[in-house]
Amino acid sequence: MKKYLSILLFTAAVTSLTSCLKDDRPNLTPTNSPAVVEFSSSTLELPSSSVGTKYALYERAYELDPNIEMPYVINYTGGSAAPKDIKIKLGIKPEAIDEYVAEQAEDGITLDYSLLPSAFYSIPAEVTIPKGQRMVKINVKLNTTLITDFDAQYVLPISITDADGTTISGNYGTILTKVSVKNKYDGNFTVTATAPMVDVTNATLTGYYPLDSDLVTTSPNSVVMFCNTYLGGLQGHPIKSGTANSYYGNFAPIFTMDDNGNVTSVTNFYGQGGNSSNRAARLDPSGVNKFTVSADGTSKTLEVSYIMVQNGSDRTFFHEKWTFEGSR
């Protein structure tokens, strides 16, 4: 159910002396392209979101675990299977991050990406596509417990550095993976009202439910609301203005829980009053205010009441139930 960004694959020229490919399909197929070695863009075994020009960027969010295995597939493309064992050497290409950031900046998109520290992962130095085969699967070992800065925008740029005499794809010879962590409260939820939303300053503003929303990790015990309904996956809370769809600007709740799942605070992602709307958030202690997670993590429910505060006064009262639909 995760919406994030859809795959945009860009084209490059094919020449006999370079490895750049021209193909606008989601992934190069073995029978319709020159014989090259490349990272697969459609068989990474996990949901992907990708944007890019020369390089595509994939996003991965993992729970805190010292033994994550992050899968990749390397393909041999061409009219036939590999004519021999093809030994492939892998390395890290930090400059690919700089190229990607610079290309996005040309479109007015500012990114603050940094290289994933080497202590956080390990990659195989060499893998082999066996003779007669078209691919090899690899796993990058990842220790997400070492990630303590939940705001960091870490990217892992893995590159095929040598392909045993076989041409390396210019588009897919390097793959960028943005790695983030998620706590046990993280996921995609359906949000319903357990009591009507009330805006004490404007009775024409009412609740907009149900909502398709994500809770995204901001710390080991807190999550922020990203709403897919109406807002397209941005931090915010939709409302109804009469019969029209609307939302509160500069307002998105952050829920913080204690070790027992009790909601201990609700704050505003955009600042506790330090925004142009002078809006903050606080917990309504009259609510259930409990986040319940099953032992296997497949069932998650948040029942919470909270208040949007504006100019120092309680303005809008929310009473909600968040029901887990799946991982984002």
Rank of each mutant, 00 (worst) to 15 (best):
K2V: 15
L9Y: 10
V14R: 14
T15C: 03
T18M: 14
C20G: 09
D24I: 10
D24M: 08
N32R: 14
S33E: 08
S40M: 12
L46Q: 10
K54F: 06
Y62H: 08
N75I: 00
T77S: 04
D85N: 15
I86A: 02
L90V: 11
D98K: 13
Y100W: 12
P117Q: 10
Y121D: 05
A125S: 10
A125H: 14
E126Q: 13
E126T: 05
K137F: 06
V140E: 05
T144I: 00
T144V: 02
D149V: 03
F150T: 08
D151R: 11
L156T: 02
I160K: 01
T161Q: 09
D164I: 05
G165C: 07
Y172F: 11
G173R: 13
G173V: 07
G173H: 08
K178G: 02
N183Q: 01
K184N: 14
T190K: 14
V191G: 00
A193W: 05
A195Y: 04
P196I: 02
V198M: 00
N202C: 04
T204F: 10
G207H: 03
D212P: 01
V224W: 15
T229P: 02
G233K: 00
G233E: 06
G236F: 00
N245K: 14
F251Q: 02
D258K: 11
N260F: 05
V263A: 02
G274A: 07
N275A: 07
S276I: 05
S276C: 08
N278Q: 15
A281N: 07
G287N: 02
V288S: 15
V293M: 07
A295P: 09
T298E: 14
K300E: 10
L302F: 01
L302M: 11
M308D: 03
Q310V: 08
N311E: 14
S313K: 12
T316K: 00
F318R: 02
W322K: 05
G326Q: 14
